[in-house]
């Protein structure tokens, strides 16, 4: 598989792992130096805003403690389309831009009798990824989830 295809494959596989909440397996696709952030531009305050920013250890702690927290368990489905992959062969790395649309299929978030089973648009944005390529494997060095929404209602305990 060429480097560009490898990057696309890694992004798509990681999408499935996130959807299935296989957090440990998702983290296995992330380098030890991995940096994760969810950001948006807010025209309300005319600034970039950061909604979450964690390194790999921080993410691992967050995910480990999920069972301790009360959570809306409505599953998220990420529809990812990789738009561009720019490989830097000398640096053995690549940058990728993907569109991501996240749907939330309601389970226990509101009134489950009425709402459970309904899918709603939750997030509109892009994945801005940097990956390293070594030994025919691609690992995430960073992911910025650049979202358009500033209306986030209940938000989420989960990485996007």
């Amino acid at each position: 598989m060429d480097a560009s295809a490898l990057v696309r494959d890694t992004i798509y596989r990681s999408t499935i792992l996130l959807d299935q909440q296989r957090w440990e397996e998702w983290l296995a696709h992330c380098d030890d130096r991995f940096e994760y952030a969810i950001r948006a531009f807010s025209p309300e305050i005319n600034k970039d805003v950061t909604y979450l920013a964690l390194d790999r250890d921080g993410l691992a702690s967050l995910l480990k403690l999920l069972p301790k927290h009360n959570t809306d368990h409505s599953p998220l489905s990420r529809h990812t389309s990789v738009y561009t992959v720019d490989v830097d062969e000398a640096a053995k790395s690549a940058k990728a831009v993907s569109s991501v649309i996240v749907y939330q299929t309601l389970l226990d978030g509101i009134n489950s009798h009425v709402d459970a089973g309904e899918s709603r648009l939750f997030i509109v944005g892009k994945y801005l990824d940097t990956l390293k390529i070594e030994d025919d494997k691609a690992k995430f060095l960073s992911r910025e989830v650049r979202i358009e929404n500033r209306r986030l209602d209940k938000g989420s305990h989960w990485p996007i």
Binding site: Y51, H69, D72
Partner: peptide, 27 residues
């Protein structure tokens, strides 16, 4: 500022630990 934002978000951001729970409660 980065540190302050992280302190804010860890509990009160839309992907933080407490705000999500508060909103589930009021909902």
């Amino acid at each position: 500022r980065r540190t302050r934002i992280n302190h804010h978000n860890s509990i009160w951001g839309p992907f933080g630990r407490n705000l999500h729970e508060d909103l589930i409660g009021v909902q």
